[in-house]
Design a protein around this nucleic acid. Structure first.
Lengths: 129, 129
DNA sequence: GCGCAAGGTTTACATCTGTAATCGATATGA
DNA sequence: TCATATCGATTACAGATGTAAACCTTGCGC
């Protein structure tokens, strides 16, 4: 099991996810720094960010490294692992586990732009020359 | 706006979704019938199903057609609309709205089987001959 | 006619989530 | 040294969710 697989049990909520994104973008930030990133966008107060950080620590999703009298927070789960988990969960729930069905659905509902199709085509060529 | 677009505001929860699946599979079922389908799988009691059906009616997700002294429940939102909404939400949240990124991610993490790739390839051929 | 079964409706209640305010310790500038 | 600004920790609290039990009405079998 590689170190990015610490998805484990605890579920990350929507609000918490916003905080995770900030930390994935730049690890080892203080609560205040994280707040600077998201408080504006989401209309949160510093207190809210602190709560979310605490909960994430409890859930084992991030680590709090002591730095003087405050903490530097860093993700413990990789973004890829999280994204993969969420994606798999969706495919499982809505497409009976068949990822191709998801792609088909996206295509049929025109959720895929021409550029998307280009990208996917390129991907395919790469995967199976 | 076609009749499948009644996603509207009210969010369908996970438990409710299980009920929706039963009704999408076969519309016009009674609470008892729905229970027969899901109570076993999810370890629910009939009471729980009744609650979920009520909440779905309130949310405008299903209709309750009187049939003697009971109701026959039928989805008001199409499965496609729901699935599309959920998919879009995920792509938005995790892939910055770029659906191709999701596909790429699935491919990179080997969430796509050979069969999936075949299917996608076929899809592409169909979409852009 | 009467009690029971079957239906829906109302109420319940523990968790989880979102969003803070408050508290207590502490470093810090005046 | 003392008030104050900072931090994290603790507590709060409303709304959403999962999961039912209790309740009320009514058709049905006896």
């Amino acid at each position: 099991m590689n170190p990015s697989d610490e998805n484990s049990g605890e579920r990350i909520t929507d609000a918490e996810h916003a905080v995770m994104e900030v930390l994935w973008d730049r690890p080892r930030q203080t609560a205040a720094e994280v707040c600077e990133e998201v408080c504006g966008k989401r209309g949160w107060s510093l207190a809210t960010v602190k709560t979310l950080l605490s909960r994430l620590v409890q859930k084992g999703a991030i680590a709090a490294e002591p730095d003087g009298r405050r903490f530097l927070y860093t993700p413990l789960i990789a973004r890829d692992a999280y994204v993969g988990g969420e994606s798999r969960r969706l495919v499982e729930r809505l497409f009976g586990g068949r990822a191709a069905s998801l792609v088909a659905h996206l295509a049929e509902t025109e959720a895929l732009s021409e550029a998307d199709l280009d990208a996917i085509e390129a991907l395919l060529k790469e995967l199976r020359p």
